[in-house]
Design a protein around this nucleic acid. Structure first.
Length: 294
DNA sequence: CGTCAGGTCTCTA
DNA sequence: TAGAGACCTGAC
């Protein structure tokens, strides 16, 4: 995407940006450490930096940053090199997706850190979003590094595998992780001891990456697909959570379709763009409560 | 008080 | 190989 950017006063302004809506990006279920401010902007931490993102008209404003970090971190993080017009055009041939895309037109898939996403989605299993956020924030406050205070709030980086590997299960459980604490510690152990190189998995095929990820305890097919989609640039991954299951059954399939059959159907129907379809459908389903039983 | 939430693990047939 | 139960925790 062509970027027309202005740098001033510790800000980067991207002029006339299409396919970029902070609410859609930060609330489509892919990230847990971005929070809405009173003015409607979002502040979050990624790659050890604090950033505030806002939109004014068609301009996107990144505050608390500079051109160097924009080029080094944020351009890639926000997937700004990808042509979302083309993706939307292809997916819009499907009538349900056309509506979902219209609804979440500003979604982009973030390119997040593999380790952080591994732990984040292990934490997400059978959990609620506010609880997941609280657990990850607590882990960061206690075991990450203090970065800076921004608008009166203190921000911490996500703890490293090494930092977590030094802890006991009870330390990790006391961060509201519940029964997932043992999985988190185990993942820290595996990554810190380099039994699995979490940063090399993206280099193998989606099918092989899924097999590698499932070796981590607490990682099943759904969490593996989240990790691949949200941190490994594998857009053919299609995580099926309760919302996606509901929306797929509601629009495309019978009730009580088995996960494996939904997986097959989606892969077949959406192919290389399945992950993007998943994001539009998830946001559409969750915001509208589609298929939710009373 | 049960139920349930961004699933996965364990055990059984 | 498939299906049932258990599982931290807290909000309803």
């Amino acid at each position: 995407m062509d970027i027309n950017l202005i740098e001033k006063d510790n800000r980067i302004i991207l002029k006339d940006v299409k396919n970029f809506e902070p609410k859609h990006i930060f609330e489509c279920g892919q990230c847990f450490r971005w929070n809405r401010e009173e003015d409607g902007s979002y502040t979050g931490v990624a790659y050890g930096k604090v950033l505030n993102v806002d939109k004014e008209g068609n301009d996107v404003i990144f505050s608390n940053t500079n051109k160097e970090d924009f080029e080094k971190i944020w351009y890639n993080y926000f997937d700004l090199g990808r042509d979302y017009d083309e993706i939307k055009l292809k997916l819009s041939k499907d009538e349900t997706l056309r509506k979902a895309i219209e609804f979440g037109e500003g979604i982009r898939i973030l390119r997040q850190d593999e380790w952080e996403i591994l732990i984040s989605f292990i934490t997400s299993a059978n959990n609620r979003i506010p609880m997941i956020k609280r657990a990850l924030e607590t882990l960061s406050e206690r075991y990450g590094d203090f970065i800076e205070e921004y608008n009166g709030k203190k921000y911490y980086s996500f703890p490293t595998a090494e930092a977590l590997n030094h802890l006991s299960v009870d330390d990790i459980k006391s961060c509201y992780t519940g029964f997932r604490g043992k999985y988190i510690l185990s993942a820290a152990n595996i990554v810190d001891n380099r039994e699995i190189d979490i940063y090399a998995i993206k280099n193998v095929s989606t099918e092989d990456a899924r097999k590698d990820l499932i070796l981590f305890p607490g990682v099943g097919p759904k969490v593996a697909d989240c990790i691949m989609l949200f941190s490994m640039n594998k857009p053919d991954a299609f995580p099926i959570d309760v919302w996606v299951k509901r929306v797929m059954e509601y629009f495309y399939l019978d009730e009580d379709t088995k996960l494996k059959d939904i997986q097959k159907y989606s892969q077949n129907r959406f192919g290389e763009l399945a992950g993007f379809a998943q994001q539009y459908l998830f946001y559409y389903a969750r915001e509208l409560g589609i298929g939710k039983k009373k």
